[in-house]
Computed example of a mutant assay.
Amino acid sequence: MSENTRSYAALRPSAVSSLAGELRLACMRISRRVRYESTDSIAPHQFSVMCRLEESPRSPGELAEIERVSAPSMTRTVGGLVERGWVERAPHPTDKRQVVVTLTDDARKALKDTRRKRDAWMAVRVSNLDPEEQAILLRASEILTKVANE
C-alpha cells in the first residue's frame, strides 16, 4: 500500500496517553532550548506579557487573566518591565482606578531582536533535516497549532 493510500488506525487510549506525554516533553524541551540558545535577556514571563501588549494595550488585570497568574504576580511583572523601560503605564480612559500598560519602542525592538534570534536558532536545526523530515515538521506544525488553539 502506498503512503498516500495508507489508512491509519486510531491509537489505543494508552498509546494516545504516551504520545501526549512525549509531545509535551518535546515541546517543553524545544521551548527551553530556544530561550536558552537565543541568549536573550527577556525572561519568559516578561516576553509573554510583552507579546500580549503588542496585540493591544491592556490593564494589569486583563494581563493577569490572559496569562492565568495572580494580580500581584502581574503587578510585579509589569513593574519589572517598567523599570527596564519596556512598558509605560497610563491612566485608564474610563476607570481612573486602573492603568493601561503599553509597549515602548525599546520593547518592540527587543521583541523583534529576540524573535529573530529564536527563529535563526530554529532555522539552523530545521535546515539540517532531510526534506522528508522538513515536510513532516511542516504538517506537525499545522497540527500542533490546531491543538494549541483548542
Rank of each mutant, 00 (worst) to 15 (best):
P13D: 06
Q46D: 11
R116K: 15
L19P: 02
S56D: 09
G85N: 10
G85H: 08
D130P: 01
E132Y: 03
L144K: 04
R29S: 06
Q98C: 05
E142G: 13
S14I: 11
R6N: 00
G80S: 07
S59A: 14
S31R: 11
P131N: 02
I66L: 05
A123D: 15
D119T: 07
D119I: 05
A43H: 02
T75W: 08
T145D: 05
Q46E: 14
E37T: 05
S41G: 12
D119C: 07
P44G: 02
V100F: 09
E67T: 07
Y36H: 09
M1H: 06
P93H: 08
S59F: 01
P91I: 06
I136G: 02
V69G: 07
S7G: 00
K146L: 07
V69W: 12
S38M: 03
I66R: 02
T39M: 07
L25W: 07
R68P: 08
D40K: 01
M122G: 02
E62R: 07
R35I: 04
E83T: 10
E88T: 10
V82G: 03
D130Q: 05
V87C: 02
T104V: 10
S56N: 10
M1I: 02
D95G: 02
E22G: 11
T114C: 11
R52M: 12
R89L: 10
S141I: 01
R29H: 04
E132L: 11
Q98K: 15
P131S: 10
I42F: 11
A71E: 14
R118W: 08
K117Q: 12
E142V: 08
T114A: 09
R12D: 10
G61H: 12
R35E: 13
V34Q: 03
T114F: 03
E67I: 01
V126K: 03
V126M: 06
E150D: 08
L63F: 06
R116D: 11
V69A: 11
A15P: 01
S56R: 15
R52D: 05
R84I: 04
F47E: 09
R118G: 11
L19E: 01
S127M: 03
S48G: 06
S2N: 09
Q134R: 15
A107Q: 04
S31A: 13
N4V: 13
R6D: 01
T39N: 13
T39I: 10
H92S: 09
D106E: 15
N4S: 12
Y36N: 09
R97H: 13
L19A: 13
S2K: 00
Q98Y: 12
Q98V: 00
R118Q: 15
V99S: 12
S59M: 10
E3I: 01
V100C: 08
S18V: 10
A110D: 06
L144R: 02
Y8N: 00
S31H: 10
V82E: 15
E37L: 06
V100T: 15
L63D: 00
A10E: 03
H45C: 07
M1W: 04
E62N: 12
R6C: 03
A43N: 04
D106C: 08
D113M: 07
V87N: 00
T102N: 15
A71S: 14
S73L: 12
A140P: 00
M28A: 14
A107F: 06
Q46T: 02
R125F: 05
E67A: 10
P60C: 00
N128H: 06
L11R: 09
E3K: 08
G80I: 02
R125Q: 14
G80W: 01
P44M: 00
S48T: 10
V49G: 02
T39L: 15
A107E: 12
V101W: 04
